[in-house]
């Protein structure tokens, strides 16, 4: 069976720094993979190379068996790749419903409609409200995003990615900067996602990462250091050393 995502000896070099150093990994269809590692391990750079924000220096990226290494980002989205950002990236001047509407029409031809108002598309509105309900923000559909708290913006961040209807979803620290109770909310939302969606997630919070993932990849200094089930990784002495710290 073809893997959902297959990365083959991918490298990204910034000057003399090998931020990602010949990383290979495969994520199976429907799998939930956590990517962990200390700061500067190259996790986000790897994400950017996979999702098309950056071009890798070498290596290849395959999505469902198709080579997408040099495909522009917007086309990857059409192929079923979705992502969230580590630094919240939502449209603060628009309302929540408008944010979702942009995600909903982004992957079809309706995004080019210029001669009819958005309000002429009741299906989009309906879908936007459903999408907001899924992250508990339905009541605030018509508020501008600038009135939302940071935690609520993180929820919206997730909703945006979900409403492009991804088959593979890349989450870059979905719980970054959240309070423990807010983390729980996001954690539950992610866990409640349908299993058909393949998940690849960077997460610093070990409880979240290990609680959600089927398999864990540990990165350090641009390389894959270990890979396995959460239990295997946690008991790996090398991983314990660099990641969990030693006394």
């Amino acid at each position: 069976m073809t893997a959902a995502v297959a990365i083959d000896s991918l490298a990204k070099v910034f000057g003399g720094l090998r931020a990602v150093d010949r990383v290979s990994l495969e994520v199976a269809l429907g799998e939930r993979r956590a990517l962990i590692g200390p700061n500067g391990a190259g996790k986000t750079t790897l994400f950017h190379c996979i999702t098309g924000r950056m071009q890798p220096s070498s290596g290849s990226v395959k999505l469902f068996g198709d080579d997408i290494t040099y495909l522009p980002e917007h086309q990857r989205t059409k192929l079923g790749m979705g992502r969230t950002f580590q630094i919240t990236n939502v449209f603060t001047d628009l309302s929540l419903a408008e944010n979702l509407a942009l995600a909903i029409v982004g992957t079809d031809r309706r995004k080019w409609v210029w001669n009819r108002p958005l309000s002429a598309f009741p299906a989009v509105r309906e879908q936007a409200l459903a999408g907001l309900e899924a992250v508990g923000l339905k009541d605030r559909a018509d508020d501008p995003v600038k009135l939302l708290s940071y935690g609520e913006r993180r929820q919206l961040e997730l909703a945006l990615a979900l409403n492009t209807h991804p088959k593979v979803l890349f989450l870059d620290e979905p719980c970054a900067g959240l309070s423990p109770s807010e983390r729980q909310r996001i954690f539950k939302m992610i866990r409640a996602l349908p299993r058909e969606i393949t998940l690849v997630m960077i997460e610093h919070d070990m409880d979240v990462a290990l609680g959600l993932a089927d398999r864990v990849t540990v990165m350090n200094r641009g390389r894959v250091m270990a890979e396995g089930t959460p239990d295997e990784v946690q008991s790996n002495p090398e991983v314990r050393d660099v990641y969990f710290g030693h006394v």
Partner: peptide
């Protein structure tokens, strides 16, 4: 205008 990078990841050229 708000976020071009987000628009690209939502499928917009």
């Amino acid at each position: 205008k708000g976020s071009e990078s987000r628009m690209q990841s939502l499928g917009y050229r």
